[in-house]
């Protein structure tokens, strides 16, 4: 039944029971995926609000634009590679052809993300040694805030990644971990897109 038809139906009118045995679902996929999608919406709200705040604060007048460290391009590359490797492991896991390549891609993908976080910390250090601390200027404050929030979300993802990796290396097939790999991949793509958008905002102001 279409959504519109459903919400405009008169529920008190008799309808013959729909055959079937499972529960009623609005979306025909795993609950974990629904929950992750919802969570990503929540995270999007957080970053949208931060971005709106960023632009409002920028207009106040004491804004000194930040010259973005070139290191960020390198970090972005790491995150792209990470995302590609996750996608690779996800695609392979559907077919379950080559377990060891799935394991390897998934593991290295995560390592790239770890390196990304390290790279971001290095950028922080670079900025700080150039005298741009958190409190120096609103632009640098926002830089630390936005990259920090993004990094925290990535670290959260890495926690799931590390659990999945352990499970993956402890078993001979992908079975148990397929859903985790899919979820991680979705999350990684989301964080990549988020980072590219943030980078665009940071680089253009």
């Amino acid at each position: 039944m279409s959504f519109y038809k459903q919400v405009t139906s008169k529920p008190w009118e008799y309808q013959a029971p729909v055959p079937g045995s499972g529960p009623e679902t609005v979306f025909g996929s795993e609950s974990e995926k629904i929950a992750l999608t919802l969570f990503l919406v929540v995270v999007s709200v957080i970053f949208s609000l931060l971005t709106v705040t960023y632009y409002l604060r920028m207009d106040i007048g004491d804004w000194v634009p930040l010259s973005d460290p070139s290191m960020l391009w390198f970090n972005t590359g790491l995150l792209v590679v990470s995302s590609i490797l996750f996608q690779y492991s996800r695609t392979k896991a559907q077919g379950e052809e080559n377990v060891s390549s799935i394991k390897l891609a998934f593991f290295v993908g995560g390592v790239c993300a770890v390196l990304f976080v390290g790279g971001q910390l290095f950028v922080w250090q670079q900025l700080a040694s150039n005298g741009l601390g958190v409190g120096s200027n609103p632009s640098s404050a926002f830089f630390y805030l936005l990259t920090g929030m993004h990094g925290l979300h990535l670290v959260g993802g890495l926690w799931v990644w590390s659990k999945t990796s352990l499970r993956l290396f402890g078993s001979t097939d992908v079975g148990d971990s397929r859903l985790s790999i899919e979820l991680c991949t979705t999350y990684w793509h989301f964080l990549l897109v988020l980072w590219v958008l943030l980078f665009a905002v940071l680089a253009n102001t």
Partner: peptide, 14 residues
């Protein structure tokens, strides 16, 4: 997620 995904058979949203 529970409301969306785990309603028993026949329990439509409305």
């Amino acid at each position: 997620t529970t409301v969306l995904q785990a309603r028993s058979r026949g329990l439509t949203m409305m």
